[in-house]
Design a protein around this nucleic acid. Sequence first.
RNA 1: GGCGACGUAGCCAAGUGGUAAGGCAGGGGUCUGCAAAACCCUUAUGCGCGGGUUCGAAUCCCGCCGUCGCCUCCA
Length: 465
Amino acid sequence: MTLTIYNTMTRKKEPFETLDPGKVRLYVCGPTVYDKAHVGHAMSSIVFDVIRRYLEYKEYDVQHVMNYTDVDDKVILRAQDLGVDPLDLAEQYIDEYDQHLKELNILPAHVFPRVSTEIETIISVIKGLVDKGYAYDVDGDVYFRVAKDEDYGRLSRRVLEDMRAGARLGIDDRKEDPADFALWKAGKPGEPTWESPWGPGRPGWHIECSAMSLHHLGDQIDIHGGGNDLIFPHHENEIAQSESYTGKPFARYWVHNGMMQLSGEDMSKSTGNVFTIEQFLGKFDADVLRLLILNASYRSPLTYNEDVIEQAAHALERLKGGLRSASPLPDLDPSEAATLTQAAEQARIGFETAMDDDFNSAGALGHLFELVRAINEARTAGIDEENLGAAQDVLCKLAGVFGLSLTPKDQLDAEAAPFIDLLLEIRRELRTAKQWELSDRIRDRLSELGISLEDGKGGTVWRVH
RNA sequence: GGCGACGUAGCCAAGUGGUAAGGCAGGGGUCUGCAAAACCCUUAUGCGCGGGUUCGAAUCCCGCCGUCGCCUCCA
């Protein structure tokens, strides 16, 4: 089966072909670290994590780079407000985001470059652009000469003329063209600055990604990702910079995730202000956020509200339910095993077919649930552990492509288990004696403490809910 | 104003020409002492509205209505 990927550049799904066979160079634009990260940032990281996991599932060797923008207007402004050093502030949020990536079970990129550690490359790229006539300096600033790039605007399908007419900010008449953008900004007091051929200053926003991608992945990459809010101007400008500098096509596939709908007062009410990743993880499992995202197309805007979170939480319970252990019965119809094996195989094929179609995770998820049902049916029929386990392995492997851990919530201390078992033992005797009131009280009280009891044919099992 | 998305059941959502996946919620049932979980049945003759093309349309075309994003701060 062939993987097809929607390419923002062509606005079409295209068969996926890599520059080097079996190897994928993946660059994803990471956050500007000026504040706590919110679930929208998590969405982007999760989307590209799943893309990476699926590529690796298909046995591609993926080289993944994600940057942190630690030098930027927003960081500087925020630091000035707080009266702290901008780089320290950035460092703090980078640490936090690193932690979030772990908690969200996102595979770490192979390289996490930052502006502050890539100044050398950035300056040499800017220098190259100036030498080739694609950039010019004015009073310590360096601007990209948009007019010199005849392809400018082809990713966002914008016409240069319209952009000039629509220029909103005060026109800076030191620029040759209102559409020209900054590669290097002359330093101002209180800002972090570095020495450069144009005097002390700092990089503009767009140049960092061109430079980092070039530095860590080479002149050309397979996939460049980010939120669709970055298409213009950020990615458009990256293309202009990179291609003007190398003279080669930059990224083969431009992949953009849709925005999580977070703005507006209605939204803050409906979510109880669970916006930051920290807040979300304080209340819900990381798998819930994954499921919420994977249930929809990565390219579409995503509804984010309390209902949807609840639904995802319930859906997660159902998925986990598929992993419960067998309760084998002796008089099993032998065809059950064959039926289950076939269901697992169908789920695998369905999953891959969906994912091959531009990472259709919602379609793929449907196949996971179908497998869960088949597993549950087989368990009810009394299938043996080995056959059930084989199907559950398929479920886990496919769920793993989604980065779902499906692990139970923080299990109680191991010390609690014997006491729960003791209560169950007493309850069993009470039930034998038909002391329903007392036995139900144990069940109800345990439930309040977060332990669910399930009375089955083989006895009572408990789990944390 | 320019560019671009989207509108499928109570909610989320897949599905780009062949007769509507999946999840959540709801209803009925099996199991159970009662529950829970699980399983079975059930919930859109219908895909924003109106036309058109076609043997056949959620899917293609035209118009209208509505929601949203971007237009040099943004994952």
